[in-house]
């Protein structure tokens, strides 16, 4: 059992040195020792108190596509894991994202300090305290930053929402964490028109976090404080511009210049002119119309002058 817990904590990530090594054969070779067992996709045990299946598996494919792909397992996990069977003491390995990610200039853009602050304010931490950790949402072995780099908003929505649904669609887990059984997501959102369409088009956190944040908001609000007013999104100054489309509009501002972003930001219905080429087309049509108009005016003036003559 001890060994088990030790092995389970393998899933959890800590810091030794966040050195970004190239994705070299040496990291793969080293990791292969761990993957010998931990790549088995069903490597798992049943938690003796809750009965929940605890997976000890790390998918090599996912890991080598994740943001942490250049790391060796023992960069985060204790070096003692290199011996097998693992020492029982290792079960207490307590890993925390910020051990690596704090005060590192390289990670400044991600605002980990504010994430930490926001997390402490979030309903998850408020209600569950230390029972709830980063790893309950983010598996460091498959973690990818998505919203910042993705061109595919739908993909980001799917990725981000699956993090929430992992627990919130699974009352077994919720009960394990909170002791409560929550109503189904459909019941809880029964007031929302076009539920499925909304879920495909916005992220849970777009309504359920406070938007005033430098990075991705981690301050999950209590139910009562979530966005419920349609106009907050469906308006000229849509909330979504600070949340879901935050990075998109920043990026497009960098790419296409301020003008496009301004026009984007003032659009009424979210999604109507998110397309760069449509925007370009509307500019061309607008420009052509302008040219045609001025040409027409020019002709009119000219012909009038001729008539006057």
């Amino acid at each position: 059992m001890k060994i088990l817990i030790a092995a389970f904590s393998l899933l959890i990530l800590t810091s030794v040195e966040p050195a970004a090594k190239p994705n070299s054969p040496s990291n793969r070779e080293e990791n292969q020792n761990c993957f010998r067992c931990h790549s088995m996709s069903t490597l798992s045990y049943r938690d003796t108190t809750t009965g929940i299946i605890k997976s000890l598996s790390v998918s090599p494919e996912e890991f080598y596509n994740s943001n942490h792909k250049d790391l060796e397992c023992i960069d985060c996990h204790s070096k003692d894991f290199q011996t097998f069977p693992h020492n029982a003491k290792l079960k207490n390995e307590n890993l925390y994202c910020l051990d690596c990610h704090k005060d590192e200039p390289k990670f400044k853009q991600f605002h980990f300090e504010s994430i930490e602050k926001e997390f402490k304010q979030s309903i998850h931490y408020q209600k569950l305290g230390n029972k709830f950790t980063c790893f309950d949402c983010h598996d460091p072995h498959s973690f990818e930053i998505h919203a910042r780099i993705s061109k595919d908003i739908k993909g980001t929505i799917l990725y981000d929402n699956s993090i929430c649904l992992n627990c919130h669609e699974n009352n077994f887990k919720i009960k394990y964490l909170s002791g409560k059984i929550l109503p189904s997501l459909y019941t809880a959102h029964s007031w929302l028109p076009h539920i499925n369409l909304h879920w495909q088009s916005v992220r849970c956190i777009d309504c359920h976090t406070s938007p005033n944040t430098p990075g991705v908001s981690h301050a999950i609000l209590p139910k009562g404080k979530a966005v419920k007013n349609c106009v907050e999104c469906h308006s000229k100054n849509s909330l979504l511009l600070q949340t879901l489309y935050k990075f998109e509009s920043k990026r497009s501002r960098n790419k296409e210049g301020f003008l496009n972003a301004v026009i984007l930001n003032n659009s009424y219905v979210i999604g109507a002119t998110r397309n760069y080429y449509l925007n370009l087309l509307s500019f061309i049509i607008f420009g052509l119309t302008l040219i045609a108009l001025s040409f027409h005016g020019f002709l009119r003036i000219k012909s009038k002058k001729r008539k006057l003559k």
Binding site: M1, T42, S44, T48, P85
Partner: peptide
């Protein structure tokens, strides 16, 4: 379930694997 060996010994975890 997908974790049928439940004695929670080292073998069981590997067998589940």
């Amino acid at each position: 379930t997908s974790a049928p060996h439940t004695k929670n010994k080292l073998e069981d975890v590997i067998l589940n694997g």
